[in-house]
Amino acid sequence: MSMFPIIMWILMVVVAFVIYIPVAIKINKTGLKRLGATAHIFTCDPDKDPIK
């Protein structure tokens, strides 16, 4: 069975992670609460410190 479709699928999951992290870091660097900069990087919980 061709593994190409599975590889493409896995690749897209990896791309999702690779794209989200820089976006979250950029938001954190603004320091703006209204953008969610003070919320946790994977839960958006405002009571926890963001992972810088």
């Binding site: 897209m12 989200y20 969610g36 919320a39 990087i41 958006c44």
Partner: peptide, 15 residues
């Protein structure tokens, strides 16, 4: 409620 929640929700959607 904010930009990070918007971005993060799509990451969790993938998972």
């Amino acid at each position: 409620k904010n930009a990070k929640t918007g971005a993060l929700q799509m990451f969790w959607v993938v998972i």
